[in-house]
């Protein structure tokens, strides 16, 4: 079986890669494009560590086939900051110590950004439910939720 030739846009750049039918988008990002910011925590859509945006929609890249990315626009954690300038969410995660080990952090940031784009002023409960698909075992979520609330406030002000 020949590999699929996939052309897509990743973080604004046109990319091309070859993949097998079974390969997930997560595999393709990590193994074919060397974008290892999205993490594999479960491969079953239960931890959210592999969260990316596909055509503006938040998904688990472990539940998308690589070949499905053809012609799509993908955004990953690697595209979150604007050059050297961190995204307000990234900055607030650092200021609030919203990460301990950091393995879940890329997924949380991508998911939080998707939330704030849709709901610029979410309540604590809305944030908690939106992020329920992102597991964190270190922090107890407290500082993550505070960081998102704070980033949302700053982004609304900006």
């Amino acid at each position: 079986m020949a590999k699929h030739h996939v052309s897509a846009t990743v973080n604004g750049d046109a990319v091309e890669f070859l993949c097998e039918s079974e390969q997930t988008l997560l595999d393709c990002l990590r193994d074919e494009l060397d974008l290892t910011g999205a993490k594999e925590g479960c491969s079953s859509g239960d931890c959210g560590a592999c969260s990316v945006m596909v055509d503006g929609r938040l998904v688990c890249s472990c539940l998308v086939l690589g070949v499905e990315a053809s012609g799509k626009s993908i955004e990953t954690i690697e595209g979150l900051s604007d050059g050297e300038k961190l995204h307000p969410l990234q900055q607030k995660f650092l200021e609030h110590a919203a990460l301990q080990c950091g393995i879940c952090t890329p997924g949380f940031l991508v998911a939080s950004k998707a939330l704030l784009e849709k709901h610029p002023n979410p309540t604590e409960t809305e944030i908690r439910y939106w992020l329920a698909g992102n597991l964190c075992r270190c922090t107890g979520y407290d500082k993550i939720i505070r960081a998102v609330i704070d980033a949302a406030a700053e982004m609304r002000g900006a």
Binding site: R30, D34, T36, G37, L86, Q90, F93, A97, T105
Partner: peptide
């Protein structure tokens, strides 16, 4: 005090290398 951790920027930008990220 509460300074920002020195390994923080790599961890919020996806650059930090965890176990499976090495090749």
């Amino acid at each position: 005090t509460r300074p920002i951790r020195p390994d923080g920027a790599d961890k919020v930008t996806g650059r930090a290398k965890f176990g499976a990220d090495f090749k």
